[in-house]
Amino acid sequence: MLNSQATPNSAATGATGPDAVLFREGMSRAAAAVHVVTTDGSAGRAGFTATAVTPVTDSPASLLVCINTASRSAQALLANRVFCVNTLSAADLALADVFAGRSGLQGQERFTIGQWEKLETGSPALTTSLVAFDCRISDARVVATHHVIIGEIVRIRLGEMKPTLIYQGRHYHKL
């Protein structure tokens, strides 16, 4: 049974639903695949680690990516109008940390880790990814603190089948 009651803090502010801390705790309990989303073009090369990636439709093939509006990568991705979603294997855990900003590497330096190729859009595709979805932005909007970006997939490169990297309970796991 779902608990849909407002928290005491939300009642005081007039907001409905749970507060942000409770929401983040709840979402930490949901396992999600780990991806590195990359872009390249006139606004430069950028990338970030994401779990907020969801298929939208299969005709035309499209997916949705969410990124915080304060992220440096968000501006490059929106300006370039292209991106590649690279689904990571368990062997790519260190790369997930690099693109999550946990290694101290910034911008272009992040692409010195791993082996990269370019697909149709020119966005970097990780050669060791389980799958790479090469996309052009078809829609983008701001929802509260995040950009919600829908990409129409223009090319899919399937990688080797191996254990997937997932994130659950604020830790990486192998599935």
Rank of each mutant, 00 (worst) to 15 (best):
Met1Ala: 04
Met1Trp: 12
Asn9Gln: 07
Ala11His: 14
Gly14Ala: 00
Asp19Tyr: 07
Val21Glu: 03
Phe23Leu: 07
Arg24Pro: 15
Arg24Leu: 02
Met27Asn: 11
Arg29Ile: 10
Arg29Glu: 05
Ala30Arg: 14
Ala30His: 14
Ala32Trp: 11
Ala46Cys: 08
Ala50Asp: 02
Ala50Phe: 03
Ala52Lys: 13
Thr54Val: 13
Pro55Val: 01
Asp58His: 12
Pro60Met: 00
Leu63Arg: 12
Leu63Gln: 09
Val65His: 03
Cys66Glu: 03
Thr69Lys: 10
Ala70His: 13
Gln75His: 13
Ala76Arg: 10
Leu77Ser: 02
Leu77Cys: 03
Leu78Gln: 10
Arg81Ala: 02
Arg81Glu: 08
Leu88Phe: 05
Ala90Pro: 15
Asp92Asn: 08
Asp92Val: 06
Leu93His: 11
Leu93Ala: 08
Ala94Lys: 13
Leu95Glu: 01
Leu95Cys: 04
Asp97Phe: 03
Gly101Lys: 01
Gly101Val: 06
Arg102Ile: 10
Gly107Val: 10
Phe111Pro: 12
Phe111His: 04
Trp116Tyr: 05
Lys118Met: 03
Leu119Cys: 06
Ala125Asn: 10
Thr127Arg: 11
Thr128Trp: 09
Ser129Asn: 07
Val131Ala: 00
Val131Tyr: 04
Ala132Asn: 11
Ala132Glu: 02
Asp134Glu: 04
Asp134Ala: 00
Asp134Phe: 01
Ser138Ala: 04
Val143His: 14
Val148Leu: 02
Val154Ile: 12
Arg155Thr: 14
Ile156Arg: 12
Arg157Trp: 08
Leu158Glu: 12
Leu158Val: 15
Pro163Met: 00
Thr164Val: 14
Tyr167Phe: 07
Tyr167His: 09
Gln168Glu: 08
Gly169Asp: 06
Gly169Tyr: 08
Lys174Tyr: 08
